[in-house]
Computed example of a mutant assay.
Amino acid sequence: MKRINLNKSIFVTALVIGALVVISFSNSSKSKKVTIDYKSSVVSYFGTNSVTKADLVKQAKLIDIADRRFETKWKNKNPKGISEEYIVEGAVFMKPGVKPRLGRADIEKEFTESVKGVDRVEFYQDELEFYGEMDVAFQRCHMLGFVDTKKEHTFEGSYIILWKKENGKWLIHYDMFNSDK
């Protein structure tokens, strides 16, 4: 049997996507889907629980609040605070051109550098999907980065986040982004 060596970021990306596919199809015959519009995005639930549209709105608002916390911590140049938006064990941050950052300490180091070059970021959710017991969520968004002396954004990109609820709080498990320009 031939062994294939995958780049770690490709492996992690494939693992996340594979996990989402397994979640989506594991109970497809029993699966329920509930969908709402939230701000400028679509929010859905895929699973076997009875979930109301009000449940979706409540959880979507909590993730929206988490996105705003992240933005505020960035603007305040608080890389330790940013790293605390990730799960305690097993957090992964991936950006183009560098190896994945694993764990809060490594993620804090990454954002220590990132907040130096970009004064603030803005996140815009395009899609949010909840799974299982509404304790896992997949978010697809786009973002803009600004240097405060300029009125126009200095970069833009897309990202996906796999959220996990820990102790009642939505935290980032996997964070992957690309810079479009």
Rank of each mutant, 00 (worst) to 15 (best):
M1A: 11
K2T: 10
R3S: 04
I4C: 00
N5T: 14
N5P: 02
N7D: 11
N7E: 09
K8T: 11
K8N: 06
S9F: 01
S9N: 08
I10H: 09
I10Y: 08
F11Y: 15
V12N: 09
T13C: 02
I17L: 11
I17R: 07
I17T: 12
A19K: 14
L20W: 06
V21G: 03
V22N: 07
V22C: 03
V22I: 14
I23Y: 00
S24Y: 13
S24V: 08
S28Q: 01
S29K: 10
S29D: 10
K30L: 14
S31C: 13
K32C: 00
T35K: 12
D37Y: 07
D37I: 14
Y38A: 03
S40D: 14
V42A: 06
V42H: 08
V43G: 07
V43T: 12
V43I: 12
V43C: 05
V43D: 03
Y45G: 01
Y45Q: 03
G47I: 14
T48P: 11
N49Y: 03
S50N: 13
V51W: 06
T52S: 15
T52M: 06
T52W: 05
A54K: 15
D55G: 04
L56E: 00
I63M: 12
I63P: 12
I63C: 09
D64L: 03
D64V: 05
D67P: 00
R68L: 12
R68P: 00
F70D: 02
E71I: 09
K75F: 07
K75P: 02
N76L: 13
N76R: 07
P79W: 05
P79D: 02
S83Q: 11
Y86P: 04
Y86K: 04
V88R: 01
V88M: 00
E89C: 00
E89F: 03
G90E: 08
G90F: 05
V92W: 00
V92E: 00
M94K: 07
M94Y: 01
P96F: 01
K99D: 10
K99Q: 10
K99A: 12
L102I: 15
G103Q: 13
R104D: 09
R104L: 06
A105Q: 14
D106G: 02
F111T: 07
E113F: 02
E113M: 03
E113N: 04
E113L: 06
V115A: 02
K116N: 11
G117K: 13
V121F: 04
E122R: 14
E122M: 11
F123A: 00
Y124N: 05
Y124S: 07
Q125T: 15
E127C: 00
L128F: 04
E129A: 07
Y131K: 04
E133W: 11
M134D: 11
D135S: 12
D135T: 14
D135N: 14
V136Y: 07
F138E: 06
H142Q: 04
M143Q: 09
L144A: 08
F146V: 10
V147R: 13
E152R: 14
H153S: 13
H153G: 06
F155V: 14
F155I: 15
E156N: 13
G157I: 04
G157N: 01
S158T: 14
S158I: 15
S158P: 05
Y159G: 10
K165N: 03
N167F: 08
G168M: 08
K169V: 15
L171G: 03
I172N: 02
H173C: 04
Y174W: 06
D175E: 02
D175K: 01
D175S: 01
F177K: 05
S179M: 11
S179H: 05
D180Q: 10
K181P: 07
